[in-house]
Simulated scan of single mutants.
Amino acid sequence: MKITGSLRLATRPPIIQVIKTSIAAIAAWLLSVALLHQPLPIFAAIAALLVVQPSVSQSFARGVERSLGVIAGVALAYGIGALFGRSSVIVLGVIVVALLVAWAFRLSPGSANQIPISAMLVLAIGAQTPGYAVDRIIETVLGALVALVVNAAIAPPVALAPAHLAVQRLVHDCAAALEAVADALTTEQTGEQLDALLARARELRPLRDTAQSAISAGAESLTLNARRGRHRRILERDTELFARLSILVTRIVGMSRTVHDNWDAEVVDDPTVHDIAREMRRAAHDLRIVAGDGDAALPTGPPEPPALTAPLEVLRPHPTQWMLIGSLLEDMRRVREEVLGALDEA
């Protein structure tokens, strides 16, 4: 593995992020010069550089943690400096104490690093520079505020597309997995084919986790975002659909496991099993309708959507495969509830 591999990202951040960060740093510098009469307000620029984040909510959190870290570090330095002086040993001791304080209060890495840095600078430089500590706090807070305003005002990102695509992919993969279970119930299967069926169903779990992460990122991008009003409904619909898909993933994995463990050649000719398989294909068809695939059709012909109608009923259980059939019937009942619920919300 190349050493530079850990230093480079797989993709570049958007160029707008570079522009916003540059504007925030320059604006924080100029504003500090004008208001505070500081010839070199480097701490305002540093705060602006660190606070501009991919989302407004992240900028707000970074600004708060940096500002609180500076204030805590300055207060700690003043207290220890007043009691023990400002020698080199005291400066080193303050660093250790600041790290222990951050650890004791379970502070975030941003605040945990900022407290010892601020305390060290106040003790080392503040003694020769009157008002250094207060100026540092004001500069940092000013730089953080400027960065927050710039990030909120200039094209705040809305990360809804990745969430929508992840949910749509999960919909289609759930539909395909249902059809795979239906095929396994109606055609002869080898051990390898049954193993592949179960493996395919289990692949839905990481897809579900990916969709959940994308939805969380989308929700975060809308927090404190001025454009959230016109985008929130899209995210709400994807979130509601994802909640139903999460249940479907559990059911599909369970059905695949049941078929994998209990499949027998005689189920292929059982009419009840064929009815269950038909219901699975109908559920897959209706899932694709939820995803916006309006021309989805069953292999036996294009029924009028939605394809799911009355729940399947079995009056006489199979003499030897009743456990397999009963388990599939219960899972299909719950699958049907979620699919029809998604259709009603679509």
Score class of each variant (00 low, 15 high):
59 S>Q: 09
142 L>Y: 03
240 E>Y: 11
283 A>R: 02
74 V>F: 03
301 G>E: 11
163 A>K: 05
153 A>F: 13
177 A>P: 01
120 M>C: 12
144 A>L: 05
176 A>K: 00
16 I>Q: 13
113 N>P: 02
333 R>H: 14
151 N>I: 00
166 A>K: 02
48 A>H: 08
18 V>E: 06
79 G>E: 10
87 S>M: 11
76 L>I: 10
16 I>F: 05
113 N>G: 15
34 A>W: 13
131 G>M: 08
112 A>Y: 09
96 V>I: 14
153 A>G: 00
53 Q>D: 01
100 L>P: 03
20 K>S: 03
89 V>W: 13
270 D>K: 00
228 R>G: 00
162 P>S: 13
137 I>F: 07
116 P>F: 14
131 G>Q: 06
29 W>I: 15
64 V>L: 15
331 D>N: 07
159 A>F: 09
145 L>V: 13
52 V>N: 12
99 L>E: 13
262 N>I: 00
153 A>T: 10
287 L>V: 06
180 A>H: 06
242 F>Y: 13
317 P>R: 12
163 A>C: 03
53 Q>L: 10
174 C>E: 07
7 L>A: 11
266 E>M: 07
42 I>H: 07
136 R>F: 10
277 A>D: 08
235 L>P: 03
343 L>M: 11
163 A>E: 03
205 R>E: 15
323 M>I: 08
2 K>G: 04
237 R>S: 03
1 M>F: 09
119 A>G: 14
188 E>R: 10
119 A>I: 10
318 H>L: 06
225 N>T: 12
199 A>H: 02
155 A>Y: 05
103 W>H: 13
38 Q>Y: 06
164 H>Y: 01
107 L>G: 08
150 V>N: 04
270 D>F: 06
83 L>A: 15
85 G>Q: 12
145 L>R: 06
44 A>D: 06
225 N>P: 09
232 R>M: 07
131 G>P: 00
23 I>L: 15
293 D>N: 04
296 A>R: 01
147 A>I: 06
168 Q>M: 01
269 D>M: 01
343 L>I: 12
334 R>V: 07
255 M>I: 09
20 K>P: 01
157 P>E: 05
260 H>N: 05
262 N>P: 02
321 Q>L: 08
118 S>R: 14
150 V>Y: 00
19 I>F: 15
192 E>H: 07
99 L>T: 07
141 V>H: 08
275 D>R: 04
308 L>V: 11
2 K>V: 09
82 A>I: 10
281 R>V: 10
346 A>T: 11
272 T>E: 03
